[in-house]
Design a protein around this nucleic acid. Structure first.
Lengths: 147, 147
DNA sequence: ATAAAAGACTACTAAATCTATATACTTTAT
DNA sequence: ATAAAGTATATAGATTTAGTAGTCTTTTAT
């Protein structure tokens, strides 16, 4: 399961993606629009800024904005930045690898082998999907929904 | 991430799968072979038994065994029994669904849409993979490994 | 220059969950 | 009868997550 942090980060990036090119957007606006606790969101946006995804501007008229085109920010990055291993087993994680202490030899572990496959399938989707894609999906869904 | 409980359950089922048809196997044997805390494993095997996957036999010479052919027990079942939602978002889970409280309309949520796709890809693998398949993978890996 | 707006940073707490252990009980084989 | 082995429940400890609080810094508007 993704943490709230990760979900909030994704939601915020989608909002900022829709806003790309416009004036920076305030934390409180994002928070209230997306129903995210403001103080929590502050921390998350800071992380995303420190990771180089967002710029920030202080003072009146300040806020946050995307540094890059939303088409160049991928969901997989967001998960990784916000601490979420994508793999379902630590011994299968590319970026958060940890040895299974119960496993004698992970190279011959059948369970692991299955979850390598799961990881790859997941990763394929998440590395191919950008924030712009998410926004596009949203408007497609909206179209279907109102029809 | 899968819980230890789920991982231990899978490991245990693989061992019992290799043992299918033979005399029941004792908890302590499984525990020591697979480096699983015995008391914890007791609880897990009990759950799997209550779910109808295992039979148990008390007393001297007792132990646990698979009720069904390992080819008819699927990894997805094990995850569900041991409490692990497969989906990465609660609003996307088929068996452990929960509304996202931050979401206004989940039917038009782009993030959700992505993770529906991830869920389906994961689910495809896990519903198609049986304990017997895991055992088969293990022996294939072992072959590659010793070559 | 000063006040207000807005983000930056650090620390802390509360709650939930997970992992593991402990204890007492029941059944079965010999 | 006794020992082996599973059944059942409770509980403790550790870890993680989610969220809150408070203070500091920067920028803009007046």
């Amino acid at each position: 399961m993704l943490s709230k942090k990760t979900r909030y980060a994704l939601k915020a990036l989608v909002v900022l993606g829709k806003n790309f090119g416009d004036a920076p957007m305030q934390i409180s606006k994002i928070a209230s629009e997306e129903h995210i606790p403001k103080k929590f969101l502050e921390q998350i946006l800071l992380d995303l800024r420190n990771a180089g995804l967002l710029y920030s501007k202080k003072g009146s008229g300040g806020g946050y904005g995307l540094v890059k085109d939303p088409a160049k920010i991928f969901v997989v990055q967001v998960l990784r930045l916000t601490g979420g291993p994508i793999a379902l087993l630590p011994c299968v994680s590319l970026n958060f690898y940890q040895k299974c202490d119960e496993c004698d030899n992970e190279l011959t572990c059948g369970v692991r082998d299955v979850f390598v496959e799961v990881r790859d399938a997941t990763l394929k989707i998440l590395t191919e999907t950008s924030i712009a894609d998410v926004i596009r999906r949203e408007s497609n869904l909206l179209k279907d929904f109102t029809e």
